[in-house]
Simulated assay, not measured.
Amino acid sequence: MSVPHAHVIGDPIAQSKSPLIHGFWLEKLGIAGRYKARHVEAGNLGEYLARYRDDGSWIGCNVTMPHKQTIIGHLDQIDPVARTLGAVNTVVRQENGALIGFNTDADGFLEPLLPILKSQHLFRMARIIGTGGAARAIIAALAHNGFTLVVAGRNPEKAQALIDELAPGGEHHAIPIAYFAEATNFAFDDREGCLDLVINASPLGMRGSPELPFDWSHAPPGSMAYDIVTDPVETPFLNAAREAGHPTINGLSMLVGQAAIAFEKFFGAAPPREHDNELHEILTR
């Protein structure tokens, strides 16, 4: 009997830590399965899916940049959450070869924030940098949890379009990403009981990419910095946040959280999260 296998696809893909995560869980659970990275360029996405759709041992794939939105047109069914977000990061093959798209990014992103979100706050604000597929999930998730949003992108019109689509009705704002690059002396609300997040949901700061231009004078006292970049794990954005006295969350938290949901869809078993500390050590080597 063939061994079930899954992939993570993207362009680039060499930096992906997903094979380490899924391989770690497969080994801990003693499950016969494989999970590997596959480099798939934009023009080859349809060819890739056509090749594996008829492979009975292929159980699906995770999807990363730049395919999260374009892959939708190649699938047979889209989960309601993924359809609302307009982005797919997990594809599961059915026994009849049908491909169903899901999005686990929103729940993965929120996972490390859940203990904080259980508390009541006077006000919640998030500054989100980026307008790609991951940003879509983050915008929707935070709007649903009562945050006022400031979305920054190279194209403010695209940022505003995301707000209008995913977080209508709130007092949200779209701004150019360059706004955060220069220092400010804005007088922030420093009352206790406010929750402020600063989130890098862009590829800026990823190995081989330019750094994110963010001056920490734009962050209110006590703001939490959250970077979804995973290579490197400790980005210049997070290092600068710590130097300015802000608590931080690195991209492994979201990566492992969303991977846990995908793993169960692929292999039919909940991952052994009691080993998270060991897994994080492996991922940061």
Rank of each mutant, 00 (worst) to 15 (best):
D54M: 09
V63A: 11
I71H: 09
H74I: 00
H74A: 15
G86E: 13
N89S: 11
Q69D: 02
N44W: 05
M65K: 08
L45A: 11
V88I: 15
W58Y: 15
Y52Q: 13
T70C: 13
M65S: 12
A50Q: 14
G46T: 01
A50P: 00
T84G: 11
D55F: 06
N89G: 14
H74V: 01
L75K: 12
K68S: 13
G73W: 06
I78R: 07
R93T: 01
L45Y: 07
E95W: 00
T64D: 12
Q69C: 03
D76V: 12
V81W: 04
R53N: 06
Q77W: 13
E47I: 01
A82S: 12
C61A: 15
A87G: 11
V91W: 08
S57I: 04
V63D: 10
V88K: 11
K68E: 13
G73V: 03
H67D: 07
Y52I: 12
E47D: 13
K68R: 06
Q77C: 13
G86R: 00
R83N: 14
Y52D: 09
G97L: 09
A87F: 11
L45G: 06
R83Y: 05
C61D: 14
K68H: 08
D79V: 06
Y52R: 08
G97R: 11
G56C: 04
N44L: 13
N89I: 03
N96M: 04
T90V: 15
P66A: 03
G97H: 00
M65G: 02
N44C: 08
C61Y: 02
A87I: 06
I59K: 11
E95V: 11
Y52T: 14
S57Q: 09
Q94T: 06
Y52N: 10
E47W: 04
L85K: 08
D76H: 13
N62T: 04
R93E: 03
G73N: 12
V88W: 09
R53E: 02
T90M: 00
A82D: 11
Y48I: 02
E47N: 05
R51L: 13
S57T: 10
N89E: 03
N44E: 15
A50H: 12
D76K: 08
I71S: 05
I78V: 14
V92Q: 01
I71D: 01
D55R: 08
D76T: 09
R51F: 07
N44T: 07
I72N: 04
N96V: 01
L75A: 09
Q69G: 09
A50C: 06
R51G: 03
A82T: 09
